[in-house]
Each structure stands twice: as C-alpha cells, then as structure tokens.
C-alpha cells in the first residue's frame, strides 16, 4: 500500500499506575501504521488494550515511551493538542455519555464552537453533518428521546462537524440493538467511502470487523494478526486461543474442511459462503443441470470477486 500515513505508532510503551499491584503494563513496544483513507477494525477481547490504544490516537492518553504521530504531528507536543484532536475525532461506547446538549443541533455544534469557527459556518457544518448521518430531521429534538443507534449517529455527526481526517470509534455498537448496529455501521462505511475519512473501528463483533478493509487483532497489548479480514479470520485457531471468535460462516467452512470437503477457508459473508458451497457442489457434478438458476439469481460483483477457486488452499 502506498498511501500517506494517518497514524504512526512507533515502539509505544504505556502503563497504568495501580495502587495495589503497582504498574500494569499495557503496551511494551507496539508499532503500527495506519494509512490515510483506510477502514481498519481493531479486534480484541475485553481488557486487551484496544481502548487504551484508541485513546493514544488523539492524545487523550500520551505515550510513556516511543511515539504516536498523527498526520505528522507528535501527540506529545502540547501546542498541537487542539489540532490533533480536530484531525482525529473520537466516538465512544456509551451514546448517553458523550452528548453534551439537550438539543441535537446544539450538540453537533459543540466541537466547532470550541474550535472558534464562525457562526454562519458552524450552521453550515452542523446541517451538513446531520444530513450525512441521516439525522437532519431530528435537529431540534431532545437526544434522550432518540434510540441508541440514533444517538450514536448524533455523536458521529458531532465529530464530523470538526471536519476530521480520521475517526476512531471505540466499541460504538456495544450497547446497541441489531437495528442500531446496522445504522452505525452503514454510517461509518459511508464516511469512509464517500467522505474518504480514515476509520478506525474498535470492536469485538466479528461480523463488524469483516466489513473493514483491514483487521488488526490484539491480545495482551500485542498485535497478533494484521491483514485483510480474510487473512485474519483464516487463523481461527489463533483467534480462539485469545478469546475471540471467527464469523460463523468461517466456522462452518472449517468444520466442512475438517470432514475432508474441499471448500475455501475464508468466506466472510453469507452470500460468499453459499456461493462457495454451491461451487463445491458443482465441482462434484460438472454437468449440473441446475446451473441456470445461478444466472437467474442476481449476484453483486463484489461477492463474486471473492470466489476464485485458487483461494481454496
């Protein structure tokens, strides 16, 4: 990949002071680079350090050793603090605990107001941000009357009103129902695709991670796998060992392979999985009379692209 860096973490050291046990070391020499425009999912079990890492990205926490560079700015340079936070916005887990105002549009205006943006421009940014997340019609509502997914979209609007280049979302869907999760994920994907914002999504939902362009799996403050979702989820054993899971479609394929069936080990979506199974069945019987039904059924090119037989090890 040949893109400009959004975030560069070099040899990061970090530990929390604890009263009884002394120091709790979270990172001991962690390095990672995230390119501008990427959609990265950071996976890990509770307490693996993924949230601590997220807070390093916009200088809420500072390195104990090593460095974190955000768009060329060292997070330890205090004079750059506001600029860093304006470049890297952050959305947190609990939607209730990040909304400041009891009117939606006033809340979205909070960050630009802090940055001293001119009134007329704030208005413009707020309207645009609310339209982007699909909440413009709710601009004068009170946030406590909205659903979890809607509140989280307001929080996202509040961040994009700063015009950031990167958004870090720290388990934004952990407290939402399936409907809310879909809303938030769709919004995040849209920001990445249409607004070209770098997205770093911290999660422990495998199906969410599968939607990213790159997955970084963490355990005990270390990166244990880093690659495309397919590359990472192929390592099911490793993931299970650190308390993570793989998507169910992946589990199915692994079980079939264990039974001696030749199917690819890296299908992430339902469509991919079904298509791969269909292909495997067709291979058994090259004159499959039912082949026509496949053409009759619409398939989007994206899932077709993942079905190269060569993928099957």
């Amino acid at each position: 990949m040949n893109m400009a860096s959004a975030i560069e973490v070099k040899d990061l050291q970090f530990s929390y002071e604890e009263q009884e046990q002394g120091q709790h070391i979270v990172f001991d020499g962690l390095s990672v680079r995230i390119g501008q425009g990427e959609f990265v999912a950071v996976l890990g079990h509770n307490g693996c350090g993924k949230s601590t890492l997220a807070k390093q990205f916009n200088a809420i926490l500072l390195p104990g050793g090593g460095s974190v560079t955000v768009y060329g700015m060292d997070t330890q340079d205090e004079s750059l603090l506001l600029k860093i936070r304006q470049h890297v916005g952050m959305v947190f887990q609990n939607p209730d605990n990040q909304i400041v105002s009891n009117i939606v549009e006033e809340d979205v205006a909070f960050a630009p107001e802090n940055l001293g943006v001119e009134s007329a421009e704030i208005r413009e940014r707020v309207d645009r941000a609310l339209r982007t997340v699909g909440m413009y019609d709710y601009r004068t509502h009170a946030p406590q009357l909205l659903s979890g997914g809607q509140k989280q979209r307001i929080a996202i609007a509040g961040v994009i009103a700063m015009r950031p280049k990167c958004i870090v979302l720290d388990e934004p869907t952990a407290m939402l129902d399936p409907q809310g999760r879909r809303e938030v994920l769709d919004t995040v994907e849209k920001l990445n695709r249409e607004e070209h914002i770098t997205v770093i999504l911290i999660t422990h939902h495998m199906d969410e991670a599968a939607r990213a362009g790159r997955v970084i799996a963490m355990s005990e403050g270390k990166i244990i796998a880093d690659g495309t979702p397919k590359e990472v989820f192929r390592q099911a054993e490793l993931l299970r060992r650190v308390g993570l899971a793989v998507p169910q479609t992946e589990e199915l394929m692994l079980l079939l392979r264990a039974n001696g069936i030749d199917v690819p080990a890296d299908t992430l979506t339902v469509q991919e999985c079904a298509q791969a199974l269909r292909d495997a069945m067709r291979r058994l019987d090259p004159n499959d009379p039912e082949e026509k039904t496949i053409d009759a059924h619409h398939r989007d090119p994206e899932s077709d692209a993942c079905l190269q037989p060569a993928d099957a090890v």
Binding site: Q275, E290, K292, T293, H297
Partner: peptide
C-alpha cells in the same frame, strides 16, 4: 428480525438452486 447466520446460508443456497 434476522434468522441465525446458518439459516441464512442455507436459504441463500436454496436461492442458488440447491
């Protein structure tokens, strides 16, 4: 509401003519 992931896969396979 959704059906479980495995049911989805099997339903999709039916769409594919299996």
């Amino acid at each position: 509401l959704e059906v479980p992931c495995m049911t989805q896969v099997l339903l999709e396979l039916r769409h594919l003519g299996v």
